[in-house]
Amino acid sequence: MEALLEPVSQFFGPAWPVVWTLAKIVAIIAPLMLGVAYLTLAERKVIGYMQVRIGPNRVGPKGLLQPIADGMKLLFKEIIVPSGASKGLFILGPILAIAPSLAAWSVVPFNEGMVLANVNAGLLLLLAITSMEVYGVIIAGWASNSKYPFLGSMRAAAQMVSYEVAMGFALICVLLISSSLNLSDIVHSQGQGRFHEMGLSFLSWNWLPLLPMFIVFLISGIAETNRAPFDVVEGESEVVAGHMVEYSGMAFALFFLAEYANMFLVSVMTAVLFMGGWLSPIGAIPDGFHWLALKTAFFLFVFLWVRATFPRFRYDHIMRLGWKVFIPITLVWVIVVAVWMMSPLSIWK
């Protein structure tokens, strides 16, 4: 690999680090976008089968070209800017929605040493970037100058801020027991302990000692991405499609892509933080990127499964779950984990 890259790096000279980083970014974003496109198909197929339907099966063999057709359709549609809209912000909304969900992938470790930016404060950086996701929705809702989008964006602001707190506390538990903010180190810290030596690595991952936090994180993740059953932001029966009402064509598609990219991000984060990232579940099988992909795929399936199973939460119930159930649970569990670590019963020595 090094020898192959040598002539290329000499050709670019001092610009080489920039070019190389850009190449890595493309290598992350391009498969991600393809995955996002096919996640939409997977969602329609999975929900179709769960409702005893077939799902899309017309475009291409077994409907496999459906996402491409959808993408082309949206690409050729006109973007209509409402006359009363705040034009600059109306365009900025979808861009701000998708940018953080792509930027957050810079710190995700895919394999041993396979990470774009191996920063020390990776977990904090991730929290900071994902906390900016809400701006796309709020700006879009306000800039549309229309009632349903505005209601949707108000709901988004309240919901995403509330669940971020619970998510943050769950992450504090993770960083307590791995005593590092670096995501690669967090994965490494899960590959040790008594069960790991017995060959049953999957029992030494964070999900078992932090089971309540694992569940809280997953549910908060679903709420953060505004997916069903927490999708009151776009709730079709109440506010039509929330912040997306006035958007058409590619501007709408960006919101759509952002939502699915966020699902990917939450799934991969759950896999990295609680399910041992790229580590293999049994000691005898080698680790590798395919394990991370498998775990991510499982959590993505959970997203679709939950959507097909539960009815939409009422708005006050969402707020109650976030503030009165999750935050007290996580707060208590942070203290429990801290005391557990300091006690002689600690399993993280």
Partner: peptide, 12 residues
Amino acid sequence: GAVMVLFLFVVM
């Protein structure tokens, strides 16, 4: 991520 979101919430 938090303060300005709530600020915007009120200003809007």
